[in-house]
């Protein structure tokens, strides 16, 4: 893919860790790619796997779900439950032919501004390589 392609990434960040981590990256003036559309959720466990499918349908080129490190969940076990779900959803998406780079999950704590930068940079670079998502966005359908 051309270097110019700017992927549209939808990021679901948990309120307690990853959102704060991203915030810290901002307040610390750490520069990272601006391709993210952040949606704050209370917990990574709140992210319904259908959100990912819906994001891809609505024009996202990739999705990132980020939560607290295992054991740090504000609700004790939300991220553990999310981990199981997305381990399966990721395989299912891949099985129907969605490039595995399009779905990403990370653990970023409130103090990991630098890690947040690495995660986002990695995801965006990968998606630049993968190119636009053309398999089943709604817009491709003539309506």
């Amino acid at each position: 893919m051309s270097e110019n392609f700017e992927p549209n990434v939808v990021a679901f960040l948990c309120n307690w860790c990853s959102y704060a981590g991203a915030d810290l990256a901002g307040t610390s003036r750490i520069e990272y790619p601006p391709n993210l559309n952040v949606i704050r959720v209370m917990c990574s466990g709140r992210v319904n796997p259908m959100f990912v499918v819906n994001a891809l349908q609505q024009g996202a080129d990739g999705v990132l779900v980020s939560g607290c490190h295992p054991g740090d969940c504000h609700y004790m076990e939300g991220n553990f439950l999310a981990r199981r779900r997305f381990a399966l959803m990721r395989e299912l998406l891949n099985f129907v032919g969605v490039d595995e780079r399009r779905f990403n999950m990370s653990w970023v704590s409130a103090s990991e501004g630098a890690k947040w930068k690495d995660v986002v940079t990695g995801v965006v670079n990968n998606l630049q390589e993968a190119g636009p998502f053309t398999e089943f966005p709604r817009k491709k359908i003539d309506w």
């Binding site: 796997p49 259908m50 499918v53 819906n54 349908q57 779900r85 399966l88 959803m89 299912l92 998406l93 129907v96 398999e135 089943f136 966005p137 709604r138 491709k140 359908i141 309506w143």
Partner: peptide, 18 residues
């Protein structure tokens, strides 16, 4: 259409995971 049908089949399959 392909988009909704794919979402439908992904939802159906995923809701049967495990």
């Amino acid at each position: 259409n392909v988009s909704e049908n794919t979402a439908f089949q992904l939802a159906r399959a995923f809701h049967l995971a495990g």
